[in-house]
Amino acid sequence: MKLVLVWLGWMAAAAYPAGAVITPSACAPCHRAETEGFAGAAMTHALSSARDSVILRGNPKLVVRLGEYSYEIARAGGESILTVTDGKETLRVPIAWAFGQGAVGQTFVFKLEDRWYESRVSYFSGLAGLDLTLGMENITPHNLLEAAGRLAGPAEMGLCFDCHATNVVKSPAPDLAAMTEGVQCGRCHQGSEAHLQAVRARGTSAPMRKLGELSAGEMSDFCGQCHRTWSQVAVRGPRGIENVRFQPYRLANSKCYDPADRRIRCTACHDPHRDLETSPAAYDAKCAACHSLAARRNGASTRLCRVGVRDCVKCHMPKLDLLGAHRKFTDHWIRIAKPNHPYPD
């Protein structure tokens, strides 16, 4: 046994020098169950360089016209160039980063004169093309640069990179020197580097915060660091259908939500180490953990559905259209959703 641990320690030492980002392959020898599906998980691909973006590589020429401006994103060598013109003048700028793994789409970011800009057009998978970036509906560009993108302050960009990548120094301005694209193990499991070093050095483990012990409320706040917490949206908005994207906020408003009850925490339904399960039936067992005769027999005072026991989420977590996103989002505000009822907020 000791020999095995020493060998594991040697292996880690050989492959991962101090300061390296902890990737699934580093954790795999001990945490196979968590790491084997991680390469396919959406969060792993939350950010890619323009050079590596599957969407940009797969779409060598994208065009759209929005008002008086025409947009083109064209592949040239390993680069993707955003071109904006009003017919008189033209601005060309290479795209640096593509945010989002593509289920909804990708938003592009470029840098000009040491300032970051969020592109005014994004790629939407539901459209298989470009359209106005979400959140830019009320911004009227006054010149070509504003038409190309919205100036994003250093703090804002720090937050963007920090959620879409690992090992980002976000303040006072984003420092990407040690960054690894996408959400890697170390982004959520802080202290994993020390943990791995300890394994490498002595074969014993340095303790990390056990995320599995978080209550539903604590986990909502943890995941909400990037997916937005109930507190954040309750104070700062957005209000209306736009907040359907912020699942921890929506979930916390549900009648059945209890911050102390682990059966309603994010990981009760979603395994962050794997890609999203999209079959409604796969979630039935999660609902039945509370809403079933078995749960009732175990002492839970719970209501049972009078309509059915299958595909619960189809009725109780309806998919809603978010204008401009070209995609439906599952509303995590669990409820008896009736047709034509206003969006609860």
Binding site: A152, G153, P154, A155, E156, S171, P172, A173
Partner: peptide
Amino acid sequence: RTGDPAGAT
């Protein structure tokens, strides 16, 4: 208010 908290600090 114009998105520069580092400058504000």
